[in-house]
Design a protein around this nucleic acid. Structure first.
Lengths: 219, 219
DNA sequence: AAATAAATTTAGACTAATCTAAAACATTTT
DNA sequence: AAAATGTTTTAGATTAGTCTAAATTTATTT
């Protein structure tokens, strides 16, 4: 079944909100997509009509099995394109998201499968996010936020939960990229700022806003 | 300026018709795009309003400098993607056109420039069509159709003027691909069928419909 | 348990792109 | 040069997606 780019964006947003919040509301969706609540309501009706989501008036939405599968297909395309742009064409990790936002709507199954094959069936994209396989199976990572860790810990940065170019550029500057081993030197109670030392690089101080979006795995 | 995929398709069609016919008419455009004359008329009005084409009622359309530049940008994207899909991802020449039809509407200038660089600034796509450079300059090939050549000639196949999968598959089967050196053994007056011998391959008989879409250069 | 605030939906309108049927214009035939 | 044919345009409607303003429902205060 072929979906419009708009429909695909709604499904993707709902999928992501589903992972973040308990109930996915009209306002959440509108906010995530930079549109208005009435527009979201209209689209929600259409998606429900197409059995892609379930909707109880005034009570929020949920993905059906069909909608979930569709969302994973789009996320698969997005993440494979991101990795392809990064690994093959040499774009930086903060450049690939915006391009993938367009490329993810290109619907040619053989193309995505070929890219997957070309990259050697990778498991993660440049931001550490897992890539769903052709069947829609995805490695649900339960990594924790750096913010929740205490001083003294040794950890490895495994993913980031924000695609904002400014965020990614800042991390790069601080030597806090995916795969970097770090030591948590201190955590300040007042503002939740943290002192982090990346291996073989100088220690840095990062804000709560930054730490929150860095996912780690303890060593 | 950003154009919708529909607008881009209209400009591309008009550009191509411009090269084929003396006047580009509403019907031609509608036919090329698989739509109706009234739809084409409506779009023609909008394109003219945006100064992408000129239009005299009942008299046909022409591209403005702006429209021509836009058309070349789209054709550049299309042909670079075709070559990329063929050379990098290993798709066959009869598979790349349909995929490129979608990819050509992805509008990220740095992406196209990177692909161009990755491929080594190529001059031709897998069907022998010239790729416009970043400035919109295109090598206008004035190759002739195989149909216009007489028996006895030695020539090289340099391009094809049809992207139909069935056409391309048939050529492949007959060993008549881009770059193949051929000898024209005979041309039959009655139905314009031709006897062609590709170098190091068995001679074949081809119909007028086939010969018309094969472009050659005499050796 | 009213009153107020916040979120959601409906109502009605708009743009882009499309269509069929009918009218207007242009070309060709006789 | 009038008639017939063919092409192009207009008229009016439709669908997808969007919006603002108003109405409705749910949640929160007091």
């Amino acid at each position: 079944m072929l979906l419009s780019a708009t429909t695909e964006n709604y499904l993707k947003a709902i999928y992501k909100l589903n992972a973040q919040t308990t109930i996915v509301t009209t306002n959440n969706i509108a906010l995530a997509l930079g549109t208005t609540a009435p527009s979201a309501t209209d689209m929600i009706k259409k998606l429900a009509l197409n059995k892609l989501i379930t909707h109880t008036k005034y009570r929020g939405v949920g993905l059906t099995a069909k909608g979930n599968k569709a969302a994973l297909t789009i996320i698969r395309r997005h993440r494979l394109w991101e990795l392809f742009l990064n690994k093959v064409l040499g774009f930086k990790w903060d450049e690939v998201h915006q391009m993938a936002e367009q490329l993810e709507h290109v619907s040619v199954p053989e193309l995505i499968e070929r890219i997957d094959q070309y990259l050697g069936y990778p498991k993660f994209d440049p931001h550490g996010d897992p890539i769903p396989d052709a069947m829609g199976k995805i490695a649900k990572h339960q990594y924790q936020s750096l913010l929740n860790e205490n001083s003294g810990s040794l950890a490895t940065i495994v993913a980031v939960t924000n695609d904002d170019v400014r965020f990614l550029k800042q991390l790069e500057k601080l030597n806090l990229t995916i795969g970097t081993k770090i030591t948590i030197l201190a955590k300040h109670d007042f503002d939740n700022a943290m002192e982090i030392k990346p291996m073989r690089k100088p220690a840095v101080t990062i804000s709560e806003a930054l730490a929150k979006n860095i996912l780690i795995q303890l060593n």
